[in-house]
Design a protein around this nucleic acid. Structure first.
Lengths: 196, 196, 196, 196
DNA sequence: CATGAATGAGTCTTCATTCAT
DNA sequence: TATGAATGAAGACTCATTCAT
């Protein structure tokens, strides 16, 4: 009866405020992490009173969810498979883009990971993200195998999982833009026939 | 601010209490995570009263730190380089042991990761752990290269980082004991000359 | 403090809106009680926007006050003294009508009682209601005594108070339409001479 | 896991504090009502910090519940049936005691009524209280009927309900100690044979 | 050493009311 | 008039940490 519905802004002013909140929230989350961020910080960052946050969002989790929603699609879009002709180029390209995308969103992803410790929703978000990406990579591997460009004896799904883990882990812990080693390892692991 | 120094128990009874606390704390942390664990839960799990925890530890973080300390050494010990004669066997062996060790300590490691979000100390712990392991792997790779068993053109440090990331990520997200694919990928990536 | 004066709507549209608000408010109050009702709920029930409520009413209390105003007169009107010739019939008739009226308005009266805990205005409303009704009953008793139909030794005011309390309490707690016992008790208490 | 159990004090100091809280709470509730009472007020009245209230009680409702628990038994005890030989005396006696008990606890009962609007637990408390008392009165009426001292044609349960409602309502609205009228009405309603 | 009581800073959240459009 | 956004006072509750016994 007396709910506090996640309101969708009806006017322009409302839309602007909501945007300001999302953008402010993202900044603050990225700077302070999820747990350390106070609803008040979000309001302040958006230039509103703290009550206004609750006009558009129910809880801190909802805010993060909305922030993430905006980012997820954009993130997945930037991870589309490469169309380079050479397999190794494709891999290099894919890794480069992954590392770039990761670098751009690293801080927010960390926030989501943090939030995942106390809210399963975010676990799911991450699982989805990984699973989508891994599936794409598995498909790419299958394609390479069909073309005879990659070792046929590899399990595509497991390989994809492992290789994605490698890139993600590398991106996370070394945030280097050095993807040469990465590409080489990947290519050799898959037994890519290189043009030379 | 903090009055009582972290005390090392002098009496037998004290030693026993401290052990109970550590063991209880580990259970509770693993079950509930760091943030969700109350000092009270730790005391209860250890069968002591609330205040006793502070006889041995200064803060919740200190408790986790002590728990972790116990585990770290044990963990690193179980990750010593293999002594198998065949390179691929060495890799398989190492991966198997890594996955086993990870599985055994996964929950606690997650707790440390969670705590790392609010306390840099734990970030450091994880970094150390990874770095120690990666160094060892890098050394192993260098050895293989010296023996002519692995591709000489690979950067040992970067490769080690990437391959460790792969195993860690695989262990984390897929907690499978399927290490065949992992070993194959690793071996091929390194260009291991297989005995056949 | 309160800027806008309680306005009487001047246009037709205004009158309709005000009616909708009152009717919606009554429903919501009766369903949820006073404290649990949000201004928002009232607006929603009336099909208006949030802010519109304040065009017609100053506070939540004002809304209830207006709702009650409408009901009070109607309620008192339905409790006019009976004109049946036989005293016992008159009593039975009066009780029946009281119970019926109570049943019809019970929920709203409960709301008023609830509001009375935090706003003396509503205490006064209830006191008035009771006092009006009790006075009428006292007058009726005096009439009966004058006619020699009721025991002359009873204090009319006190008896009326007690008997009204009985009917009200019965209505409140037992919401039965069984008024036989009630009528009998009442008649015997007053020593009504029965026709037989 | 991380519950905040309604703790029973184990030490004397704890017992004293809990008592202080209950007694302070009762005062404050009676003075300000349930809704207007802040946890802080209770703490202050008990001379503790507000956190201490939560050492012993979970919510404001729990505090009231504990306060009421203490009173209920005492209240029911003081409403035991009279042992006077004369029926009318018994009634007078019972009413006198009821009015006295009511007067003593009136304020707290009002608080319970207030709380009942938002918490069904308290509705139940009141229902129980009434029902216990009404049952006793019904039993008393049956006894009188068996002795031939009261009209045999009355339904004891319904009569008890009505008469209890009368006394309660009278006590509530007129808090007079004038119980003469009450006793007379009651006696006549029941057709008590008076000794004269 | 152990116990359990006491503390209070820190946050989220609600919602009546005001205000700009 | 009507709308819907904005405000912010107010209060409940948690829990790490301190302290008296």
């Amino acid at each position: 009866m007396s709910a506090a519905p996640e309101r969708t802004p009806l006017t322009d002013r409302g839309r602007r405020t909501r945007e300001a909140l999302l953008s402010g929230a993202r900044s603050v989350f990225e700077e302070q992490g999820f747990g350390a961020t106070r609803m008040n910080d979000i309001a302040t960052a958006a230039g509103t009173s703290h009550g206004t946050v609750y006009t558009y969002f129910q809880t801190k989790e909802s805010v993060l969810e909305a922030v993430v929603q905006q980012v997820i699609d954009e993130l997945l879009a930037s991870l589309q498979a490469s169309t380079a002709p050479d397999p190794t180029e494709r891999v290099r390209d894919a890794n480069a883009r992954y590392l770039a995308a990761y670098a751009e969103h690293a801080r927010l992803l960390r926030v989501v990971e943090e939030a995942a410790f106390s809210d399963a929703r975010f676990d799911e978000v991450l699982r989805q993200l990984r699973s989508t990406h891994t599936s794409r990579v598995a498909a790419a591997i299958r394609r390479l195998q069909a073309e005879g460009a990659a070792s046929a004896d590899l399990d595509p799904a497991a390989s994809a999982a492992a290789l994605c883990a490698m890139v993600e882990g590398f991106a996370r812990h070394h945030r280097a833009d050095d993807h040469d080693t990465l590409t080489t390892l990947w290519a050799r692991a898959l037994g890519l026939s290189t043009k030379e």
